[in-house]
Design a protein around this nucleic acid. Structure first.
Lengths: 245, 245
DNA sequence: CGGGGGTTTGAGTCCGTTCAAAATACGTGG
DNA sequence: CCACGTATTTTGAACGGACTCAAACCCCCG
């Protein structure tokens, strides 16, 4: 988790050449020459929690990659109501859908924690894409994964109860946020408000509160604010059962 | 609609060079040389209504394009329950998501009408992709569009009533299937069973029947089997109203 | 300490589900 | 072409999960 303590250093100090996140992203297919192009055109920046990386409707001029932190992708309707669509974490890319399909962002992005981002301008992306067809395949793969997730979310939302969906959400969040306690239980701090949870589950904040209460009664998970304790992973898994492959 | 009556002719008789569907698909970016590769490796075939093009779990060895007819994409869970995920029509491509993300199909495809398909083997796709980066961009664009649709469907399912979603479905189907009557009303024949409609809307067949009844009472649409008449498009549009951009 | 947003709780209602039965459409063979 | 068996569709009645509106509560921060 921390073989390189300098990864949180000053943004400008990091070159794409030795960026460990690049190795794990779709940018990993680039050769030396192309990495130089990437390095020249990328700019990185930091955001405080609550800060907005871009707004829905803004011109989409390139692609972001999360270097560290958690980013919320939100979508707002005509009434100004805004719903959380998904989360993005370190190593993941942001804004590439709009980059490939339209000229402006169809969502907004907001930092949920202190966040470091890298931005690659559209010209550079375009150039790299023609240089290296494998890069396109990387994005194709990424986009395909997102589509798969969206389709699964659709099935979950229309066939599973809020309680089951809540359990499923906890299960996915634990992979990224949970740490094991000595007694075998799991502890995690949610990056989300109750309203955000409601948005992801496709329900209301009140229902989320009630569902959380129900899970506590059955000792599946204990909530205190954003801190969650899962005493036994198995009982959480039992909540699922009826998922398709 | 019919400047070329021969387009429904024997599959083998059509070359990619003068295929009007190619012009409108992501294959349109290919140059003369690449079209030859495409033409050499493509094979076309016909399917009767109800016939399956491929099963979930089959090896994905290439990409299909619909030349004519309507294809249903279905997903089945472990219990064998199967749900309709989406429809694909002439000019659209099938199976490219699984092609780019995995090695086997995550869905099944079934002909809903007499269907003619073209199949391009993975080797040819791979070759064309490296020849021509623009082809990758085409698929990127396609995939991005699918993702956008899936996200919108997700929001609709979790925030709109079944009735509103039904109206929305009719609206999208009319674009492809409806014909105007002399009295200004629209007539269309649904390619879907009630159960299929229920799957798309994320509800039950019984609820679909009741919703249809309700729409008839309010004179928004009249159903007789799979035949639908929409007396006034405006009253159907009124059912929507609360959609986001 | 006194807001003020996010969260929880309560009570009542409604939409959609469930299970069951009736009705209709459909395909097949006589 | 009709009769029959099966599958789909419709209807009914009862139930229940999630929503709505509203008030109380609790932190967090100034």
């Amino acid at each position: 988790m921390s073989e390189n303590p300098k990864r949180m250093g000053v943004p400008g100090a990091t070159s794409c050449f030795n960026c460990q996140w690049r190795e794990r992203s779709e940018w990993c297919v680039l050769d030396h020459e192309d990495v130089r192009i990437l390095d020249d055109s990328k700019s990185s920046s930091q955001f405080k929690p609550g800060q907005v990386l871009f707004h829905q409707g803004d011109r989409c001029d390139g692609i972001y990659t999360v270097v560290s932190g958690t980013v919320a992708i939100r979508k707002s309707d005509i009434h100004g109501n805004t719903v959380l669509v998904r989360l993005r974490h370190e190593g993941e890319t942001i804004g590439y859908r709009d980059f490939f399909t339209g000229s402006e962002y169809s969502t907004s992005a907001e930092a949920l924690s202190p966040v470091t981002m890298c931005f690659v301008h559209r010209d550079a992306v375009q150039e790299l894409l023609t240089h290296n067809p494998a890069l396109g395949l990387g994005f194709l793969n990424q986009l395909g994964g997102d589509l798969k997730e969206a389709e699964e979310a659709l099935l979950r939302t229309s066939r599973l109860s809020v309680r089951t969906r809540m359990a499923h959400l906890l299960l996915t969040l634990k992979d990224r946020y949970a740490e094991a306690n000595d007694d075998g239980s799991l502890a995690l701090r949610l990056p989300l408000s109750r309203q955000d949870i409601a948005d992801i589950l496709g329900t209301r904040a009140e229902t989320v509160a009630r569902t959380i209460h129900a899970l506590e009664v059955d000792n599946v998970a204990t909530f205190s604010g954003r801190n969650v304790i899962i005493p036994d992973l198995d009982s959480l898994l039992d909540e699922i059962e009826l998922m398709d492959e």
